[in-house]
Design a binder for these strands. Structure first.
Length: 645
RNA sequence: GCCAGUGUAGCUCAGUUGGCCAGAGCAGCUGAUUUGUAAUCAGCGGGUCGGGGGUUCGAAUCCCUCCACUGGCUCCA
C-alpha cells in the first residue's frame, strides 16, 4: 500500500501501482471525466501512470495550467498524426504547447516539393477532428536508445535523430495514438476524444532549434479546447485584439505613419500622436523635476571613440547602422544606439563631490538601432525610438534609496495610465557562469539583494529570472498586463557597474579620496513608441480625457451657428481644453458619427437654443446625450474631471 | 537576414483558365439642401494595378528581381 496526500491535506491509502485516473474514478466518475493529467510530487504525469511510492497528488483539469499544457501538447501530436496521414513522409521536429499565443505548434519538414499554406489548414483541421473521433488512447512506452534510433532511421527523420543524440538510454519514451508514434517525454491526456474543438491558426517558418544557420522548417500554429464554446470565446478575443491593433488604430486616429521613402521602421508622428506624446512627456518631465532630475539634451550622433570606450562598439558595432564618415578628415560617427555614453560624459565634465550625488541626468533621447528587416513591427519594434531615459550616478550607499524612488516613480506612472495589473521581473546573473559578467562578486551580490529588497519594500510582486541579467548589472523590468490580459515588458531599471568603470567616472568622497559612482539606468515608459503602441491597444484608442489629442469637438447644427461654435471653442481653448470645430456643412448626424468614430471624448452640439442661452449640448463618446449646460459650467466640469484624474 | 503570404484610387475591397477604354463604396472637389444626436442628394476629378526587367500579338493576371507590409524564426522530444 502507498499513502496519497491530496491538496487539501487529506491522506488515503491505495494499492501500490494505482493510476491517478483510478483514484479519481473512485472519488466520482464526473471528476474522472474532466481530468487531463495528474501532478505527482510536483511533476505533471499521465493520468494512467502507475504511482509506485507515497506521493502528493494533484488532479489536473482544464482549470489548471498543467492540464491545459498537457492538452495542447497532445493536440500537437494529433496534428502530427493528421499531417502524417495527409502528407506521408513528413519529418517532425518539435511540437510543444505554448503560453503565448495560447495553444501549440509543430515544426515539420514536408516531403520534397510539397508545401503547406494557410489554405491547407482547414483540411488538416478536418483530418484532426476525424482522428480525434476515433477515441484513441495515448499509449506510453519506454524504449531503448538503440530501438528509438532504429525507428527514426527507418523513417529517415534526422530531426528526431538529432534530438535522440542528446538523450540517455533509459530515459527515452515513445507515445502512440492511433497510427502515430512520436519520441516524447510526455505527459499526455488519456484519449484523443477530449479534444473537441480545434482551430489551426497560421503557418510560419522556423529554424531548427531557432538557429538561423540551421534548416528552415515549417511551423504550424493551432489552438484547441475540450469544449466548442471555449474555442468560440477564444476566437472572439483574437478578433478583439485585431480590432485594437495599434497599427490600425494609429493610422485611423492620425497618430503615426510610416513612409517607404523615409524608411522602414522609422515612425513619423502625426499631429494627434505628437499631441499625445507631448502630453505624456510633459507629465513625466514635471514629475522628474519634482524628484530632482536634471534634464539635458545631447546630440543624435557620437564619435566612434565614444562607443569604443563604452564597449558598445565591440559588442554591437557589426550589428548596428554603419558609421557616418566626414568627407575630409574621415572621422567616424555613429547614430547613437543609447544615451548612456553621452550622459557619462555629462557627469564627467566637471569634478563631482559626494555632496553633489546623486546626479540624475534625464533626457527624452532618440536612439537608432538596426533591426533586421523582418523583425520590424508597428511601433513596438522600430529602428528609431525615443527613450524616456535617465541615468542616476550615486554612491554605493545611496543605491537602494535611489532604486526605491525609481520604482515608486514607475509604479505611479503605470497606474496613472490605467494599467492595473503589473509585476516586476528581476533578472539576476547566472551563478554557474560568473565570468560572463563584469564587476566584482561582492557588488553583484549586494546589488541583487538590494533589488529584491527594494521591490519588496515598495510592494511589488516579483518573478526572479536567474541568468537573465545584462552583463553589466542586474535589472528589474516591469511586466504589464493590458485590458486583454496580454503581458508587455515596459519600464526598466538597471544597475550598471560597467560604464562608470569604462568612463573612469569618479567623485571625491568625504575622505578626500576619489571613488567610483554606481549608475542606474531607468526608463518608466521604456520607449515612447512602444509604450504608446501598448497604450493604444490597452484603451482601444479611447484615451482618457487628459491624454486625448482632441478633447472636445464643437458641432454646429447649421451653418448659421458656426460663429457661435467657434466662440465656444475659443472659450475652451482659453481654458486649456483641446478643442476643434467641425466647420463642414453637413447634417448633424454626420458630424456626430465622424466624431464618434474618431473617438473624441466630448461633442458639443450647438444650435439656436444654445446660442440664445449661451449653453452647449453635451454628448459624450460612447455614452450619448448628457443634456444642456452653460459653457462655463462645461468648462468647470472638464477641469474637475482633469483634476480628479 | 530567412520561410510563407500580401501589395489594384487617400481608405476598405472587387476584377486572375492572359483579351474591348480597370470597377465599387467611403473620403476629396463642385453644386443643391440650412438640417437637432452615428452616414442628405447629384455631378466631377482621381489609379506608372508596389518599382524594375522578361515571356506574349496582347500582362493587374504568367516568370525573374528589388522594395514595403503581414504571420513567424527552440515557451526544447
Amino acid at each position: 500500500m502507498i499513502k496519497i496526500t491530496f491538496p487539501d491535506g487529506a491522506v488515503r491509502e491505495f494499492e501500490k501501482g494505482i493510476a491517478a485516473l483510478d483514484i479519481a474514478k473512485g472519488i466520482s466518475s464526473g471528476l474522472a471525466k474532466k481530468l487531463l493529467a495528474a501532478e505527482v510530487n510536483g511533476e505533471v504525469v499521465d493520468l494512467t501512470r502507475p504511482i509506485e511510492t507515497d506521493a502528493a497528488l494533484n488532479l489536473l483539469s482544464w482549470d489548471d495550467k498543467g492540464g491545459q499544457s498537457t492538452f495542447w501538447h497532445s493536440s500537437a501530436h494529433l496534428m502530427a498524426e493528421a499531417i502524417e496521414a495527409l502528407y506521408p513522409g513528413t519529418k517532425f521536429g518539435i511540437g510543444p504547447a505554448i503560453e503565448s499565443p495560447k495553444g501549440f505548434y509543430y515544426d515539420i519538414e514536408l516531403p520534397e516539393g510539397q508545401k503547406i499554406s494557410t489554405e491547407d489548414l482547414p483540411k488538416i483541421e478536418k483530418k484532426m477532428k476525424e482522428l480525434a473521433s476515433k477515441q484513441n488512447d495515448f499509449v506510453r512506452k519506454e524504449v531503448s536508445k538503440a530501438d528509438a534510433v532504429a525507428y527514426f532511421k527507418e523513417k529517415d527523420d534526422q530531426y528526431k535523430l538529432d534530438l535522440l543524440e542528446g538523450l540517455e538510454d533509459g530515459e527515452i519514451t515513445f507515445y502512440t495514438q492511433g497510427d502515430f508514434t512520436d519520441l516524447c517525454r510526455g505527459p499526455h491526456i488519456p484519449n484523443t476524444n477530449k479534444i473537441q474543438a480545434i482551430k489551426l491558426l497560421n503557418v510560419a517558418g522556423a529554424y531548427w532549434k531557432g538557429d538561423e544557420n540551421n534548416q528552415m522548417m515549417t511551423r504550424i500554429y493551432g489552438v484547441s479546447f475540450p469544449k466548442k464554446d471555449q474555442l468560440a470565446h477564444h476566437l472572439e478575443m483574437l478578433e478583439e485584439a485585431k480590432k485594437r491593433d495599434h497599427r490600425k488604430l494609429g493610422a485611423q486616429l492620425g497618430i503615426f505613419m510610416f513612409s517607404e521613402k523615409v524608411g522602414a521602421g522609422l515612425p513619423i508622428w502625426l499631429p494627434h500622436g505628437t499631441a499625445l506624446r507631448t502630453i505624456l512627456e510633459d507629465f513625466l518631465k514635471k514629475e522628474q523635476l519634482k524628484q530632482g532630475y536634471t534634464p539635458v539634451i545631447t546630440p543624435h550622433v557620437g564619435k566612434k571613440d565614444l562607443y569604443v570606450t563604452s564597449g558598445h562598439y565591440e559588442k554591437y558595432g557589426e550589428d548596428s547602422f554603419q558609421p557616418i564618415e566626414t568627407p575630409r578628415e574621415n572621422e567616424e560617427f555613429f547614430l547613437k544606439p543609447m544615451n548612456c555614453p553621452h550622459h557619462c560624459e555629462v557627469f564627467a565634465h566637471m569634478p563631482r563631490s559626494f555632496r553633489d550625488l546623486p546626479v540624475r541626468i534625464a533626457e527624452f533621447g532618440t536612439v537608432y538601432r538596426y533591426e533586421q528587416s523582418g523583425e520590424l513591427h508597428g511601433l513596438t519594434r522600430v529602428r528609431s525610438f525615443t527613450v524616456d531615459d535617465a541615468h542616476i550616478f550615486c554612491t554605493p550607499d545611496q543605491l537602494k534609496e535611489e532604486f526605491i524612488d525609481v520604482l515608486e516613480l514607475i509604479k505611479m506612472v503605470i497606474s496613472k495610465l490605467g494599467f492595473k495589473d503589473f509585476t516586476a521581473q528581476v533578472s539576476l546573473r547566472d551563478p554557474a557562469n560568473k565570468e560572463k559578467y563584469i564587476g566584482s562578486d561582492e557588488n553583484w551580490d549586494k546589488a541583487e539583494r538590494m533589488i529584491q529588497e527594494a521591490a519588496a519594500e515598495v510592494g511589488l510582486e516579483t518573478v526572479v529570472e536567474t541568468g537573465e541579467a545584462a552583463f553589466y548589472g542586474p535589472k528589474l523590468d516591469f511586466m504589464i498586463k493590458d485590458a486583454l490580459g496580454r503581458s508587455w515588458q515596459l519600464g526598466t531599471v538597471q544597475v550598471d557597474y560597467n560604464l562608470p568603470e569604462r568612463f573612469e567616472l569618479e567623485y571625491v568622497g568625504s575622505d578626500g579620496q576619489k571613488h567610483r559612482p554606481v549608475m542606474i539606468h531607468r526608463a518608466p515608459f521604456g520607449s515612447m513608441e512602444r509604450f504608446i503602441g501598448v497604450l493604444i491597444e490597452h484603451c482601444a484608442g479611447n484615451f482618457p480625457l487628459w491624454l486625448a489629442p482632441e478633447q472636445v469637438r464643437v458641432l454646429p447644427v447649421a451653418e448659421k451657428f458656426l460663429d457661435y461654435a467657434k466662440e465656444v471653442s475659443k472659450i475652451l481653448k482659453i481654458n486649456d481644453i483641446r478643442s476643434t470645430v467641425d466647420t463642414r456643412y453637413e447634417r448633424i448626424g454626420k458630424l456626430i458619427r465622424d466624431a464618434e468614430t474618431q473617438k473624441v471624448p466630448f461633442m458639443l452640439i450647438v444650435g439656436e437654443k444654445e446660442q440664445e442661452a449661451e449653453t452647449v449640448n453635451v454628448r459624450q463618446h460612447g455614452k450619448g446625450d448628457l443634456g444642456t449646460i452653460s459653457t462655463t459650467e462645461f468648462v468647470e466640469q472638464i477641469h474637475k474631471e482633469l483634476q480628479d484624474n
